[in-house]
Amino acid sequence: MFDTVRLQTIVNSLNLIDCQDIENLKEFTYVNQKTGELCTKITGKTSKLPFIQYNSCSGRLEVELSIPKLLYGENVTLLNQDDIQTFFALLEDELYRIFGKRIEKETWQVKRLDVCWNFAVGDKVKDYLKQIALMKINRLIKVVYQDGESVVFHDKNNQKRIMFYDKERECIQRKCQSDLIERANGLLRLEIRLPLREITNYAKERRAVDILRKGYFIYATAKILPIEFTSSNEISYEWVTTHGINKAEMTIGFQTLKNEFGENGIKSLYSSSTLHNRKKLIKEMEQDVLVPELLFIDYSSL
């Protein structure tokens, strides 16, 4: 359900500088323009928390991490509601170990949250991405990366993001362990990050205990799902792997010539038997062309 989260809360008098468990400490000192107070913003990380930031003036503590990576060491596994309670307990224990203070889960506010889902589509991941790349979403800009391996829709400020990508490909690029790559095989990944405005519309105070729940997951994913695909006469990746690259190139070439010179124009380019075979191949392709199945989530199973 969830992956990366950024949480914030107010904690008075934290001393990050003397914490031996915090690595890569960086300090930034500035003058508060309203009060004239000299403030220090400190950032660092631990083995379990890749981002920690504390402001000495406001007392604001921020942490950012992947929930499934904290729990399972990877983010292919999808969370359930019981995992969220374990997450809060582990976060509280880790911060107590570092600072010697208990921070109750009810005090955390959500500043960022990535909702995620894995669609098990087998060998059709590339075909789904090809169709998704043709989609349009109102008020969002579409960007297709890495020759169609990921498709991102975002607003002009990049605060709202909807991303589809090949999870196995990402695991390979990140050089994950072979068993994790195997688990990611055939997974079409969906990730959604809503802007603070939409998070606030769901829960006015943005309390983590209210947002890290099934209800918010449905709220976020229902903005894009279900997705129904329309028929297309384009050759699919599955068709190419089934019929072979030679037939694919032959079909594409014939279609290109037909589009360029028309039905009558190509008659002089082929013998009657070859023309018949090419048309037969085109008919086979149109019959076999993949129309991806409906993308949806059965919320009753969560």
Rank of each mutant, 00 (worst) to 15 (best):
L257W: 02
R278F: 14
N201A: 15
N233F: 11
I282M: 04
H243E: 13
N233D: 13
R278L: 14
R206C: 01
E286Y: 09
T230I: 07
N277Y: 11
I245H: 04
T221I: 06
G265W: 06
F217C: 04
K204E: 15
G253Y: 02
L190I: 05
E238T: 13
E234P: 01
R183T: 13
R197F: 06
V240F: 06
D288T: 09
M285E: 08
Y270I: 07
S231R: 12
L196P: 00
S271N: 10
R278Y: 15
I266P: 00
A220W: 01
S272E: 11
I224A: 05
I192A: 03
P292Q: 10
A184Q: 05
K279I: 11
K280R: 15
L194A: 02
K283R: 14
A203R: 12
E198W: 08
K267P: 02
G244F: 09
S273I: 13
K283V: 12
N264P: 01
I235A: 13
R213H: 13
Q287N: 13
L212E: 00
R213A: 14
L196F: 04
I252W: 10
Q287M: 08
R193V: 12
R213M: 11
A203Y: 11
I282N: 02
Y270V: 08
T251K: 12
I282A: 04
L269W: 07
S268E: 15
I211T: 01
N259R: 09
S236I: 08
Q287S: 12
F254Q: 09
Y216G: 04
K279Y: 10
L257R: 10
S231V: 11
W239C: 05
F217S: 07
N185L: 09
G265V: 04
I252M: 12
G215T: 06
I192Q: 01
